[in-house]
Design a protein around this nucleic acid. Structure first.
Lengths: 264, 264
DNA sequence: GCACCTTGGATGCGACGAGCATATATGCGC
DNA sequence: GCGCATATATGCTCGTCGCATCCAAGGTGC
């Protein structure tokens, strides 16, 4: 809310509030004090091979040149935070129309060596095939495996590994940001429909279970998982079967929003 | 895993990176683009009479002059967001040393009529007696009853009522902020130790139950509540009893952090 | 075609916790 | 002492979760 930290604005008398307020706003000078820079950083997340993965962007400029970072950008004066996150996700990561949610705002004084930068972090959830096809307007990207060195929802920073298992150096405090993404996803997974966002529209229950195991970092009981998913009514059978598998094909399901009807 | 998607960036010679980065930082001009204002808004929360209450501050300046608002202030260039929230809580609400946690960042373009203001919202948890004694450095405050017009974790804006049940007009989007506080508290209550923050150091299990009922907005089963609280090992009996009650006094408990030892 | 393997999908059992009822304990007012 | 309100403990039921078992269905090798 609103209050001015430093020298107070010259006081005006109290009456005629509307005209008074208009006059106040006309005289208001937003540039009176220095303001911090505000950015959004977006972590596009998927699951594969039993682990979480995140798309990272190689920094081509200082600071942290050459290191890997989340897709980020400054917030425009006339765009909301959500709009800025969508724009950054589209331009820096080449992804649009996918699930996007605010995570946390990082505002330590020295987190960016340039100047005071406050960063509103978002995470985006997308299925693995789509993330692999992601093509930004320019720049080098990588889909890094997230290595979580803690259990459950303890929290803490995580590591980003390339295909050979080598650690990718992360820029700024992005190892903390990604750690908080993991913690948040683990906390929300069993009561919010976020597992479906990491899969294509049609999926088998086994795939959904593998997504949960990748997010949680532990095995889940197969039968209990199936029962609880089906009992919650969040998925509907399509009658179709998966193809080209060397064993008994499983039925394909789709996510149904219990509130409103949805496309198939 | 990892894959490089796009055309490689024209590489600059990689050596002398440190000196290079120092030169870049020296030439960086933070005032090159206009920046939004960044504020913190703190909602001091307690429970009483079976409902959530929040401390609100009367605005003495435009905009929204005369309306009630969360305790807020601009973020200084050399203080972290958490530090700013602590400072605002101390100066605007007269409270210090209490539980404080970031909630969400509100950044719609027109949420403040003056200029672009991005607000990082926090909530603070404090026991009722302490909130009633809170005395800011200056200004008029009120402890408003929060009326939640929705059930469970549906979410949405809430109303602030004074002692007579009359609605208090809220400034900016603070009805939404308070609504999100309620939603967050309801979601975290049963797996995070936040109920204890709303009580004095020593409390009866009945008091803890009443806190839970006030936050959740519904009754909870007494015996199940007692059993689960005791089984989780988050509280320890003190051996003391409550005094001056016209019925059998209950034993006083205290919160124990299961990780590290704590004071009694 | 047939044996065999692998995975999908259903059923049954026991453990555990939540909700509910009951019984007993304890301080106060009469 | 007696009644009352509340605290505190115990027993019961029921739903859910974890675990084991069984059958179904498709592919592979002979």
């Amino acid at each position: 809310m609103t209050q001015r930290t430093a020298k107070p604005i010259p006081q005006k008398p109290d009456a005629r509030d509307d005209a008074d307020e208009r006059a106040f706003l006309a005289a208001y000078d937003a540039a009176e004090f220095p303001h911090p820079s505000v950015t959004v950083d977006v972590a596009p997340i998927t699951t594969a091979d039993g682990a979480l993965h995140a798309l990272l962007v190689r920094r081509t400029e200082h600071p942290a040149k050459g290191r890997w970072a989340l897709a980020g950008g400054f917030v425009g004066m006339k765009e909301s935070l959500d709009d800025a996150a969508e724009r950054v996700l589209a331009t820096k990561a080449g992804l649009s129309g996918i699930f996007l949610e605010q995570l946390y705002t990082f505002g330590d004084v020295n987190r960016d060596p340039r100047t005071r930068v406050i960063s509103v972090a978002y995470y985006a959830l997308v299925d693995h095939a789509r993330l692999r096809r992601a093509q930004p307007e320019k720049g080098e990207v990588v889909v890094a495996r997230i290595d979580v060195p803690w259990e459950g929802e303890a929290g803490g920073r995580v590591l980003a590994l390339d295909a050979d298992g080598c650690e990718l150096p992360l820029a700024f405090d992005h190892a903390d940001v990604l750690g908080l993404v993991v913690k948040r996803l683990r906390g929300k997974l069993d009561y919010a429909p976020i597992g479906f966002q990491l899969l294509p529209r049609r999926f088998t229950l086994r795939q959904l279970q593998e997504v949960h195991e990748a997010v949680l970092g532990r095995d889940v009981n197969k039968d209990s998982f199936r029962r609880s998913v089906l009992a919650r009514g969040l998925v509907a059978a399509t009658g179709e079967m998966e193809k080209d598998v060397p064993y008994r094909p499983a039925e394909l399901y789709r996510y149904v929003n219990p509130d409103r009807a949805r496309e198939s």
